[in-house]
Amino acid sequence: MVFLETKNLTKKFGGNTAVNNVDFTIEKGKINAIIGPNGAGKSTFFNLVSGFHPPTSGQVIFKGKDITKLPSNKIAELGVARTFQTTNLFDQATVLDNVIVGHRLRTKSNLFDAIFRTKRLKQEEKQCRDKAIEVLDFVGLTDVAYKLAGSLSQEEKKRVAFALGLATDPEIIFLDEPAAGVNPDETDGLAELMEKMVERGITVCLIEHKMSMIMKLADKIMVLSYGEKIAEGTPEEIQNNEAVIKAYLGGSAIA
């Protein structure tokens, strides 16, 4: 089933075309991966799908609804989460405190509720806190929930980023290089976590450079090169695709 789809998605920055005419479909309940040499337009593609930049042309369709022109916060409300390569956390606050705000979009309390400490606020605060505890447990960070975010390891920070995304109650999550800068053992742990998300019914789409991980993990891969889709298919298909091999040999070496 087509879950999220892009049609002729194009983004130009000045004279450069960062993403060119990309058609891509993401199936529900699968792990989808986007790979490509540096500067291939992967992050830009993410930015377009999550409403960060408006595309120059083309469409993004989520569950049959055109979300191309929606701002990123509205897209998040519809159930599309994303993480960044680096996550700026509030280092002086606890991990839990950092994650609580992730569920904010599902709450309604406003300034009035805050100033008068209404029942709604108290109830929603509990709701957010419970959600944060739940997702921290899901990503395996229960132990450090009350530690300061500043004291976390690189891998733990990655997990917090996941938790923050998951706290928004997404149906699909876009992960931008989730395993960058962590060691091989930890990479395996993160891969397991992604599989766990899929089991939970959350569709995953990720950008990654670590090929061994992708080839094991992904159900479907799209390859971008110079902003264009040059291949799409299962890991086996991609590994044997001539265009892909050429792009990688011509560009940066395959990892």
Partner: peptide
């Protein structure tokens, strides 16, 4: 304050 981009992606109308 921490990151406006991040806030926006977790559904906050910044």
């Amino acid at each position: 304050r921490n990151s406006e981009d991040l806030a926006q992606t977790i559904g906050i109308n910044t």
